[in-house]
């Protein structure tokens, strides 16, 4: 696009990073090799990490060779019955759904206020909502578990839900606030000028406009909750373990059971996450899973 502009300029046309020649030179420069090499190494490692779990879970015996001697599904049935995986998966889904619903109900109204108006103490409120995201779960998880045990709320599913809500409510707020900000306030004003009261403005105008944002942030909360280890670990009782905690427990008790059952459980966990991920990626941009920044659609 800027070829004619830069070609005449001094010292720009031929440098490796220059835009006009990028398409041609991606393969050619040493910098590009280095970058793609690093990405490649990372991806191979990732593949190895995921692949070895996958292969081991299907293998009969696997000692000093590249691949297992034979393949079987027995580890899956073993893991399924020994760890009571059906119950664990049901608990996991119950926790996830409850956390999503509650965090949307609590978070969206608050994010509306944060997006739309200034008020005294707004910075403090904002910081309060930001802290649970910034702090690592284990820091506030221990005092939180103490309090929940004190009120006999921990050690069962309600404790797991409450603990998981702590980072998720702020997460919904932080993802929804920029989403609401980009909805022109004059649309709400227009509804008011047409005679709509606050309730109608919310149900008829805002709710339909916010739906995509709510959906996106719900899915992100779902992924986070299923993957959240620390908080669930600290507050779960024997009957309220989610999949990730059950996996940790089985790994930590290694030696008692065959490594393969642990791996097959890991594969089940992985499949749950992958299904969620595939669903999530239908609705949200990959970077949103990380950055909470609502990117404009550019591609």
């Amino acid at each position: 696009m800027s070829t004619t502009l830069t070609r005449g300029g001094p010292a720009t046309g031929r440098t490796p990073g220059a835009e006009p020649s990028r398409r041609r030179r991606v393969v050619a420069t040493p910098g590009a090799w280095l970058v793609w090499g690093a990405v490649g190494i990372f991806l191979v490692t990732l593949l190895g990490v995921v692949g070895s779990v996958l292969v081991n879970s299907f293998g009969t015996q696997w000692f000093d060779s590249w691949m297992p001697n034979g393949y079987t599904l027995q580890w899956y049935s073993e893991a399924w019955s020994e760890y009571g995986l059906l119950a664990v998966i049901i608990t996991t889904l119950e926790v996830a759904v409850a956390v999503v619903a509650l965090s949307v109900i609590l978070g969206v109204p608050a994010s509306y206020v944060l997006a739309r108006q200034k008020f005294p103490g707004k910075k403090i409120v904002y910081l309060l909502f930001l802290l649970p995201i910034m702090m690592p779960p284990i820091t506030y998880g221990i005092p939180l578990a103490t309090v929940l045990y004190k009120f006999h709320l921990a050690g069962n599913i309600s404790g797991v839900i409450l603990a998981n809500l702590v980072p998720c409510v702020p997460f919904v707020i932080m993802t929804m606030t920029p989403f609401i900000e980009q909805i022109d306030p004059s649309i709400e004003h227009a509804a008011r000028m047409s005679g709509a009261r606050t309730w109608s403005v919310f149900t008829r105008i805002l709710a339909p406009l916010l739906l995509p944002g709510i959906l996106a942030s719900s899915i992100l909360v779902l992924v986070r909750t299923v993957g959240m280890f620390e908080l669930t670990f600290l507050t779960a009782g024997p009957d309220s373990n989610t999949l990730v905690v059950a996996l940790f427990n089985s790994m930590n008790a290694a030696g008692i059971r065959a490594q393969q059952t642990v791996d097959s459980m890991a594969v089940i966990y992985m499949s749950v996450m992958m299904i969620l991920l595939v669903v999530a990626l239908r609705f949200v941009n990959p970077t949103q899973l990380v950055s909470q920044v609502k990117e404009e659609q550019t591609d």
Partner: peptide, 24 residues
């Protein structure tokens, strides 16, 4: 595709990564 692949380890979480590293 690349960004999607990179999201995978984030969603897998540390427990599964640990299991994979032990094997790999």
């Amino acid at each position: 595709f690349l960004t999607t692949v990179l999201v995978i380890p984030i969603t897998l979480g540390t427990v599964l990564t640990a299991e994979g590293l032990l094997n790999f």
